[in-house]
Simulated scan of single mutants.
Amino acid sequence: MGTGMGAPTADTSTSPGFHELPGLMGLMTGDEKHGPAATSTLDALWVLYDRVLRASPATVADPERDRFLLSKGHGPMAYYAVLAAKGFFPVDWLPGFGAYNSPLGHHPDRVLVPGAEIGSGSLGHGLPLAVGTALGLRAQGRTGPAVWVLIGDAELDEGSNHEALAYAGATGLERLHTLVIDNSSATHGWRGGIASRFEAAGWSATTVDGRDHQALYEAFSAPHPGRPHGVVARVEPKDA
């Protein structure tokens, strides 16, 4: 993917693995209505943090780190579980999720959550923020850091995302990557599939099984010179 820091490292002999994530998520209660929003992202988040992102607890302030923006911030339990598993904050923070004095709110707060790049939860904001982040890095001459943003398919009902798609494609923001978790939540949908919307705006785009870790990795790491890249991860429908 990028160059510079290399892949994130962790002590795999002691850090939790993917199969322990449901247990970590089970420590967080009180927002069960957003459980599907969280579980739909779990596999894709894990593959990103485990195999793709150049981001770790040691690089949270490194200007050459990759940036990951969670736009789908109204269901952050999977995100918190992955960050805890990767050592960004202690696992014993998880049972306090949503409590008055807990840093782990029902929407993530970048000031309180180590590793969080934005405060999020209001749908439609993350992709425009990612475009701005990629533009800022380009203006600074930083060509190494990749910018990733995770959105839900329903966020494509928001006009702000289509403006961001058009601008990013026209300006060739090749360090920008958008991961769309498609659990059939969108009101409108898109004729020809979501990936076709990205391609029409000049992006590289592909659609994969959002539970297949190898397929996700290959889609995440596919070359896309001169163009931003979109990955649509299909998972089971929200109400299935």
Results as ranks from 00 to 15, higher is better:
98 G>R: 05
178 T>Y: 00
59 T>V: 07
83 L>E: 06
132 G>K: 10
104 L>H: 03
181 I>M: 09
69 L>K: 03
139 A>S: 15
115 G>Q: 03
120 S>F: 09
173 L>E: 04
127 L>I: 07
50 D>C: 09
112 L>P: 06
73 G>I: 05
102 S>T: 03
107 H>Q: 06
126 G>Q: 02
94 L>M: 08
70 L>T: 10
149 V>L: 01
53 L>M: 10
132 G>F: 09
120 S>N: 12
160 S>Y: 02
179 L>Y: 04
171 T>C: 11
157 D>K: 08
180 V>F: 05
106 H>R: 13
91 V>K: 09
84 A>Y: 03
61 A>C: 09
178 T>W: 00
51 R>Q: 03
44 A>W: 06
129 L>N: 13
40 S>T: 13
49 Y>W: 15
163 E>G: 11
180 V>P: 02
142 R>T: 08
119 G>Y: 04
40 S>E: 08
65 R>W: 02
106 H>E: 00
174 E>L: 01
64 E>A: 15
101 N>T: 12
176 L>W: 00
46 W>K: 01
92 D>F: 06
141 G>C: 04
67 R>F: 05
174 E>W: 00
45 L>N: 08
74 H>L: 14
179 L>F: 00
60 V>R: 11
142 R>N: 11
169 G>I: 06
135 L>S: 11
89 F>L: 05
150 L>G: 13
173 L>F: 08
101 N>L: 06
78 A>P: 05
89 F>H: 01
164 A>G: 12
134 A>L: 01
53 L>N: 04
48 L>S: 08
87 G>T: 02
135 L>C: 14
137 L>S: 12
141 G>K: 09
94 L>C: 07
157 D>A: 10
147 V>I: 10
112 L>A: 14
115 G>T: 11
170 A>L: 13
116 A>T: 08
142 R>Q: 15
125 H>A: 11
172 G>K: 09
145 P>V: 11
66 D>F: 06
80 Y>R: 08
104 L>A: 07
72 K>S: 14
47 V>F: 10
169 G>A: 10
81 A>F: 11
175 R>D: 00
118 I>R: 13
173 L>A: 11
180 V>S: 05
149 V>D: 00
52 V>Y: 07
71 S>L: 08
99 A>R: 14
54 R>Y: 04
125 H>M: 14
112 L>M: 12
101 N>S: 13
69 L>D: 04
118 I>G: 00
106 H>S: 10
61 A>N: 15
156 L>K: 12
150 L>T: 02
80 Y>P: 03
102 S>A: 05
117 E>P: 02
64 E>F: 13
160 S>K: 06
84 A>L: 09
103 P>A: 04
54 R>C: 12
46 W>F: 06
53 L>H: 08
84 A>R: 03
51 R>Y: 01
40 S>K: 11
175 R>N: 13
136 G>M: 13
164 A>T: 12
165 L>P: 14
123 L>Y: 09
145 P>N: 06
137 L>P: 11
48 L>R: 00
89 F>V: 00
158 E>N: 11
179 L>E: 00
116 A>W: 07
45 L>F: 10
100 Y>Q: 12
77 M>Y: 01
140 Q>V: 05
96 G>D: 12
81 A>Q: 07
